[in-house]
């Protein structure tokens, strides 16, 4: 019995979600009275790898290879080898692209019950139960894993990491890397303004058809820049080409759960809310006081985006300068 956590680094640093999942996995291991090993995929030096120990993990298997070269067939092989090596019966991923791709394959290979997108620590008082959001955030479900083996993928930004001063033993790991694969991967970078990837962002400024024209996005980008936020948009705006597709959030786009979501000129259709209703705090700016989004909002401003947004950006800048 052991817990294996799959973590990633990006440009030599752990991703925020990887810190969360390592701390989460260490707490799951403690609840099961066993040890936790992190399989760290990606380049990192010692000073970065100590963070795994601080997350409460006892062992690190380090696959020192640039994660930008991610290959799902190879990654699956490496994870299966690491499961073999650690005799893990509980395997934990982040519910990101890697988790969505690899976790179900691992679950099927080892015949483990899978909970994808978990948002809670397990309740082990009777069995092994976990909570996740279902019906696009309109409901919550408690599931129990009935098998002895388990695979979990943890939703980013759902369980806060707890850092201590533990240390982990680090071992280089390359088993499974050489496995031939009929699958090849090339990566094309797309330019992202501001440099904050949407799914990792704590703060998000999003806008919809209420902006009227793509050139009006300068006020949105300026507001995002004022607080270091990522930008997002509603679906019609991506469909008509005002904004790039990777910014589209909602049921058919990506689902995010930042600490702060500022929605400007978005009506708040149920399919849009499906992708953002897990945000901690929602601010809605809309000129129509009857817009349905206000029902899902914590704070609201009824007014014209072109007037309100620059004022809000100025207020943020004033606040930052005073800090």
């Amino acid at each position: 019995m052991a817990v294996l956590i799959v973590a990633e680094t990006h440009q030599g640093k752990f991703k925020k979600a990887s810190i969360e999942v390592m701390s989460y996995g260490a707490r799951v291991a403690a609840a099961l009275q066993t040890s936790a090993t992190a399989l760290v995929y990606g380049n990192a030096d010692e000073s970065e790898l100590v963070k795994a120990g601080q997350c409460g993990v006892q062992n690190v298997l380090h696959v020192n290879q640039n994660f930008a070269n991610f290959n799902p067939v190879q990654c699956l092989n490496v994870v299966l080898k690491a499961i073999e090596k650690t005799a893990a019966d509980t395997v934990i991923f982040t519910h990101d692209y890697t988790g969505r791709s690899i976790a179900p394959q691992v679950a099927a290979k080892i015949e483990a019950g899978l909970i994808s997108g978990a948002v809670s620590l397990p309740d082990t008082t009777s069995g092994f139960a976990l909570r996740k959001n279902v019906f696009s955030g309109k409901a919550i479900a408690d599931y129990s894993i009935l098998s002895n083996k388990r695979v979990i993928s943890l939703m980013p930004n759902s369980v806060q990491p707890e850092m201590g001063n533990g240390t982990a033993a680090v071992e280089a790991f390359s088993e499974g890397l050489d496995a031939g694969s009929s699958l090849s991967v090339e990566r094309k970078a797309i330019e992202q303004k501001g440099g904050v990837p949407l799914t990792e962002a704590d703060l998000v400024v999003s806008a919809g058809r209420g902006m009227k024209a793509p050139e009006n996005w300068n006020v949105i980008e300026d507001l995002a820049a004022a607080i270091g936020a990522a930008t997002a948009c509603s679906r019609p705006v991506a469909d008509i080409g005002w904004r790039p597709h990777h910014e589209h959030v909602g049921q058919t786009g990506i689902a995010i759960r930042p600490n702060l979501y500022i929605a400007v000129g978005i009506s708040g259709a149920i399919q849009h809310l499906a992708g953002v209703n897990q945000s901690k705090v929602i601010v809605v700016i809309n000129k129509d006081a009857e817009a349905p989004f206000f029902k899902a909002a914590d704070y609201g401003v009824v007014g014209d985006a072109m007037e309100v947004v620059p004022k809000l950006a100025a207020a943020f800048r004033k606040f930052k300068a005073a800090q």
Binding site: E111, A112, G113, L114, I115, A129, V134, G137, K138, A139, I140, A141, D142, Y143, S144, I145, L146, S147, V283, V284, F294, K295, A296, A297, D298, Y299, G300, V301, V302, G303, E307, V308, K311, L312, A314, A315, F316, K318, F319
Partner: peptide
Amino acid sequence: LVGTKKFALPNPKSAVKLIDPENMDQLV
């Protein structure tokens, strides 16, 4: 391999706090 224990609806949101558009300092 997985069973459902219970479903629940999320806690209803408390009513939105409306802020005067002339007072963005208050929102911040």
